[in-house]
Design a protein around this nucleic acid. Structure first.
Lengths: 344, 344
DNA sequence: CTCGTCCATGGTATCGGTAACAGATCCCAG
DNA sequence: CTGGGATCTGTTACCGATACCATGGACGAG
């Protein structure tokens, strides 16, 4: 009954209780303890009570490694992601984590030093070696598609952000629809056409937004200016904004994210072009600060948390062996503030 | 040699290779395979080569659950954190993750729905049940201290952000020093005193910044205005900014983070008070966009990535049993831009 | 030529749980 | 009073790796 300590070793810890200890204290077999923990209704209430009392007394906690070894399930899901300091990925990750917590899953993350096929594969491998039950990829880049070509058989995988023809289920915000709304909004204000500051090439969200923007202009028979390519940062938005400010016929700009939009706003202002009187600007994301930009930014809100939850749900289905719908699109929402106005 | 498949079960997967399979293919015992993987120098080169060939051929990967069960080490570290969409925590997490990757550690995260003692304890428990080798707490809140009072013995824990008298090693940015620099900078520009927009009560960073700011004012014999308490959001900064704008004697404001500073800037501008001509504003964090605020924000840069790396290093030491230095302070840096100027 | 030593490898027990089956117990009908 | 099922609990055999000790062969010394 009393704890036996080995007289040696620097870390003189009382070894943690195991199932056998609980069984002994409760006067039952280890199997019964296991049942109490996993299928309580199969154990007589009074026995159960004794076992639970012993569990509390010894502060027993099951060893997950042993459980994983025999059941094959870990209760851990993996997330492969690129830069989690970016607002979108961070929020998505947060959504996943919350959903996971509610379902008693734990989340392991494998972040990538670069976005390409080989790193993505390595990230998945790293997680797989920890016996995760499934993996969510948050890497909205074309290279993700390649990385997903030959997945280890039997590992449930879900992708966030999408791309064409992925061999796995996808949860994503409908970038195309968001860009359509932003562009239509600007046209409806009387602008002849809409310039576009895009995200970096090969990013799925970036190309989705370009496609939506272009399709509206083409459908309306408007001139389609060449998109100006940024890298998501305010700095790149600023540099591009300086160029835009020099073009007097630019009156409406759709910027592929809020941070770049911030840079554009500053460049326009410095060049003496008023927003929205001279130029209207629409962003994308609706970061929490967007309402406090100068002027408050009209933008397209993405519900990243919801995307994360949907991705988790898809993964859960997949783990359960359900081959349900393979695509969950979350609708973005245009939030009109003060950076857009009718054409002067 | 050929794989035997059970004729049933919906998931008809060829069961993954185990160490015994590799051993058989290589014509050695499982023990030798284990040695090749863990202590290659103890195996004759030619045998080693045969084993490695078999490993590749079968795409063998060790089962970590089995390894954990016998070694007691998982190669996983846990991070307990609150809101990972905030810039600071997200960046810290990212720093931890990168450092962990370089050392072949995996990171599991347990995010908390609320910051208090009980949730922190639960977060640690959740991670512990997955046999993490150690835990890093990223919850710069006073409740963390309580949550750390009675830790499970033998679990290495490191705290990020600090607080007084924690029973565990701490890695943090020196908030006090940062606030001192910001305040001195404002005084050096000729301002009579400095107002302060603080973070929410009970947040460690918030109180550290208040203390640094107050100490400078007191040391210089300046009036110490009552701090105005925000909640880190641009919105709260805006509301507080409106109040500040009504006070004509407010000429210098030290705001406890950049997002609130953004709200303050907007409120001042709307009230017709020019920055920096009428009022100087200093932020804290140096988010990547700070240089594109209007005007570009003078702020205190925190190297969150470095904090994350230091925390990981401390944890690694702790796991190795080294009881080295228990505090790693990262120096913040004042970045002067255009939101501060000499008093008119 | 024999013995001791070292090196490479193998055998076996073990980590802490759970699946599958077996056995004990209880209750009630006949 | 006994048989038959239903319900509860125990026994045993693993899951896949590593620790520890044992063993066989090569080799140098005496």
């Amino acid at each position: 009954m009393t704890k036996v300590r080995t007289g040696e070793g620097p870390a003189e810890r009382p070894k943690a209780a195991v199932m056998e200890d609980v069984a002994e204290l409760a006067g039952v077999s280890a199997m019964t303890v296991s049942r109490v923990l996993n299928a309580p209704e199969k154990v007589r209430p009074e026995t159960r009570a004794r076992v639970l009392a012993a569990v509390r007394e010894l502060d027993y906690r099951p060893n997950s490694a042993a459980r994983v070894l025999v059941t094959g399930r870990s209760g851990v899901l993996g997330v492969v992601c690129f830069d989690t300091t970016l607002y979108g990925p961070a929020s998505t990750l947060y959504g996943i984590e919350q959903a996971a917590r509610d379902s008693d899953y734990l989340v392991s993350i494998a972040s990538l030093p670069a976005l390409n096929r080989s790193w993505i594969t390595r990230g998945i491998d790293r997680l797989r070696s920890q016996s995760v039950d499934g993996v969510i990829i948050v890497a909205p880049h074309e290279s993700a598609a390649e990385g997903l070509r030959n997945l280890p058989a039997g590992l449930p995988v879900v992708d966030v952000g999408g791309g064409a023809d992925l061999p796995v289920p996808v949860a994503a915000v409908d970038q195309y629809a968001g860009a359509v709304r932003a562009t239509r909004h600007l046209l409806s204000l009387g602008h002849g056409t809409v310039w576009h500051v895009s995200g970096p090439p090969n990013w799925i969200d970036a190309s989705g937004r370009v496609a939506g923007w272009r399709s509206v202009l083409e459908a309306e028979g408007r001139e389609v200016p060449e998109p100006l390519v940024g890298d998501w940062t305010a700095h790149s938005g600023y540099e591009i904004g300086k160029r835009l400010a020099r073009e007097p016929d630019v009156t409406a700009v759709f910027v592929a994210n809020d941070h770049m939009a911030m840079g554009v706003l500053r460049a326009l202002r410095e060049a003496g072009r008023r927003v929205p009187e001279d130029v209207s600007v629409v962003g994308f994301d609706d970061v929490p600060e967007a309402a406090y930009f100068w002027p408050p930014l009209t933008t397209v809100r993405q519900n990243f948390g919801e995307v994360g939850r949907q991705a988790f749900q898809l993964l859960l289905d997949r783990i359960a062996g359900v081959d349900g719908e393979a695509r969950r699109m979350v609708e973005p929402e245009l939030v009109v503030r003060e950076s857009t106005g009718v054409r002067a």
